[in-house]
Structures are given as C-alpha cells and as structure tokens.
Amino acid sequence: MIDNRPKGARPRETAETRRETTARSAVLGRELRNMYRDIAQEPIPPEFKRLLQQLGNGDES
C-alpha cells in the first residue's frame, strides 16, 4: 500500500489509540513513582554524608 501522507505526518488518532496511550502513560507514571519512592527510601551512603558534612562546615579537605 502506498502512503500518500506528507513526510512526518501522523496517522489519524482514534479513540482507541488515545485510550491505549493514556493507559501506557498511567502505567509508566505509576512505575516511575514506585522507582522514585524506592530510591528515596534508600539510606544515604556514608561517603555522601561525609561530603555533605564537609560542605556544611566549609571544609575543603
């Protein structure tokens, strides 16, 4: 089949396509929030704590 659409043109969106896109976006958003929550709950590594303490004290060592 020959595609006569201009280069870069998108196919016409249907209601089903929009629902699928919305559903994928919802799943992606949920997974990203779960990953962020898990990472935010991890303890701060001792090396980072030491660096933060040095920055807070104005130490350059």
Rank of each mutant, 00 (worst) to 15 (best):
Leu55His: 08
Glu60Ile: 11
Gly8Pro: 10
Tyr36Glu: 12
Thr21Asn: 12
Arg10Thr: 04
Leu51Gly: 01
Ser25Asp: 05
Arg37Gly: 06
Gln54Ile: 00
Leu32Asn: 06
Ala40Tyr: 00
Gln41Asp: 07
Arg19Glu: 15
Val27Asp: 11
Arg5Pro: 07
Arg12Phe: 07
Leu51Lys: 10
Ile39Asn: 00
Arg37Trp: 02
Ala40Pro: 03
Arg5His: 09
Glu42Met: 11
Pro6Asp: 11
Arg30Val: 04
Arg18Met: 15
Ile44Pro: 01
Lys7Phe: 13
Ala26Arg: 13
Pro6Gly: 09
Val27Gln: 13
Asp3Ser: 02
Thr14Val: 05
Gly58Ile: 01
Asp38Ser: 06
Thr14Trp: 03
Phe48Ser: 05
Arg18Trp: 13
Pro45Leu: 00
Tyr36Met: 10
Gly8Tyr: 09
Ile39Met: 08
Asp3Tyr: 02
Thr22Trp: 11
Gly8Thr: 12
Asn4Glu: 06
Thr22Glu: 15
Leu32Phe: 01
Gln53Asn: 09
Lys7Pro: 13
Lys49Thr: 14
Glu60Ala: 06
Met35Phe: 02
Arg33Lys: 11
Leu32Trp: 02
Ala26Asn: 09
Arg24Pro: 00
Glu20Pro: 01
Asp38Arg: 14
Leu51Arg: 12
Thr22Asn: 10
Pro46Cys: 00
Met1His: 04
Ala26Asp: 05
Gly29Met: 10
Leu51Pro: 00
Lys49Trp: 05
Ile2His: 07
Pro11Val: 04
Arg33Asn: 10
Gln54Glu: 12
Arg24Asp: 07
Thr21Lys: 09
Glu13Gly: 12
Asp3Gly: 02
Ala15Asn: 11
Ala23Thr: 09
Ser61Ile: 03
Asp3Val: 02
Arg18Ser: 10
Tyr36Val: 11
Leu52Trp: 09
Asp59Glu: 13
Gln41Lys: 14
Lys49Val: 10
Thr14Ser: 15
Gly56Ser: 13
Thr17Phe: 11
Arg5Phe: 05
Ala15His: 10
Asp3Ile: 05
Arg50Phe: 05
Thr21His: 03
Gln53Ile: 09
Gly29Cys: 06
Thr14Phe: 07
Gly29Leu: 04
Arg12Leu: 09
Leu55Ala: 03
Arg10His: 10
Arg24Met: 13
Thr17Arg: 14
Pro11Trp: 11
Arg33Ala: 14
Gly58Met: 03
Phe48Glu: 11
Leu55Arg: 13
Pro46Asn: 02
Asp3Leu: 00
Ile39Tyr: 01
Thr21Arg: 14
Leu55Phe: 06
Asp59Met: 03
Glu20Lys: 15
Ser61Glu: 08
Ile2Asn: 04
Ile2Ser: 07
Gly8Ser: 06
Asp59Val: 01
Ala9Glu: 14
Leu28His: 05
Met1Thr: 06
Thr17Ala: 15
